[in-house]
Simulated scan of single mutants.
Amino acid sequence: MTTGSTAATRPRNRKQVIVEAAGQVFSERGYHAASMEEIAAVVGTSAAALYRHFPNKYALFAECANVIVDKLVAVVDEWPPEAALTDVLVALTRVTVTHRASGGLYRWEARYLQREDRRQLRTKFAHVVGRVTELVRREYPRSDESLRAVAALGAIGSITSHRTSIAQRRIEELLLASALGVVTSDPATAAGSARLVELPVQPVPRTRRAEILTAAIPLFARDGFANVTNAQIAQAVGLAPSAIYRHYPGKVDILVAACLQAAGLLAQAVDRSLRQATDPRQAVVALAAAYVAYCFEHNALNSVAEAEVAGLPPELQRPVILAQREHIAVWEQQLRRVRPELDSRQTRLLVHAGFGVVVEAGRALRWQDAPGHRDAVTALVTGALTV
């Protein structure tokens, strides 16, 4: 009797259940904000029970970070070299959508991995990119196959970064069309799109408060908010650590200020660019060009705003999330003028796919603002939107 009860409460796949639950919690809350107790509550067990499978939170996190990438590697390795690109993208999309709830930690939270674990994760993802690149080169040969491949994967992976609710089959159809739009795009279609962008300049820090913010942003971007101390920020400005509190109640308030500054700069860029658009399609291209230019110009600021919002207390999240929603609403309005067959949720999904393209393509280009990079990424974004 006791044996049967134990078997019922400790299924053979308990470790897998823990990893899936932890991946979702880490993805939603961030590595540092998540706790073993919170993960245990989702699983329906105690924190002590988690430690029977994982020695500490980091070991569990490292396993979660590899789950979706390992499954993507398995997918590309299952297909023979002569496989059709569409078939492989369908399989990759299905895996990503299935693990949507936990996949978000790969994009931003993986920076909290230790160096060797991070290197191994990048190697695995590079293998997936390399396999997709081979297929793109065979079916749509040009000089930028690798960039188009990684951008297509960015479009697919974008589903892990938001919660827009649509039937799974429709999600897969939209993401596949978006990824194919990326791999078939031509940078020449966005040549000269920079003329549509009038990017605002990041404010010159003229007060001590502004100097603190300016110093903190690159530290947050490089090391992650949780790993940066007030002492490091103060040192960068030439202050005693205690002096920070004269200008900000706490470190989290510096982060909120950074997120709101990012939202303000992006809103200005969008407003200025849309004024120059003369038709609906050009308005979408202008939006894409403005967003791409902003990400290249203010990369550290944008990465902080994107990566750290989940870790903010709910009351501090609200103004940041509201600003993000207002930005997406502008995209939704403009894109639906070009593609009226889409409903609001489908439009939002494609907008996020475009954002995913910028993240992965920008990383692949190391955010180097070389001639043609902004135009190339803008073309990939409009490809993802299939306009």
Results as ranks from 00 to 15, higher is better:
H99S: 03
A101T: 06
G104Q: 04
L105V: 09
L105Q: 06
R107E: 14
A110F: 01
R111I: 14
Q114M: 09
E116K: 12
E116W: 12
Q120S: 09
L121W: 02
H127N: 04
G130D: 11
G130N: 11
R131L: 10
V132C: 08
V132W: 07
V132E: 07
E134W: 02
R137N: 07
R137C: 04
R138L: 10
R138Q: 12
E139W: 02
E139D: 14
E139L: 02
Y140L: 07
Y140M: 03
D144V: 14
E145D: 15
S146G: 12
L147I: 11
L147Q: 06
L147M: 10
R148W: 02
V150E: 09
A152I: 04
A152F: 05
G154V: 03
I156L: 15
I156C: 08
I156P: 04
S158A: 15
I159V: 15
I159N: 01
I159F: 04
T160W: 04
T164H: 01
S165T: 12
I166C: 00
I166S: 00
I166Q: 00
R169A: 12
E172M: 03
L174R: 03
L175S: 08
A177M: 06
A177R: 13
A179N: 07
A179S: 13
L180V: 03
G181M: 08
V182Y: 06
T184Y: 02
T184S: 09
T184I: 00
S185K: 02
A188R: 15
A188H: 11
A188D: 12
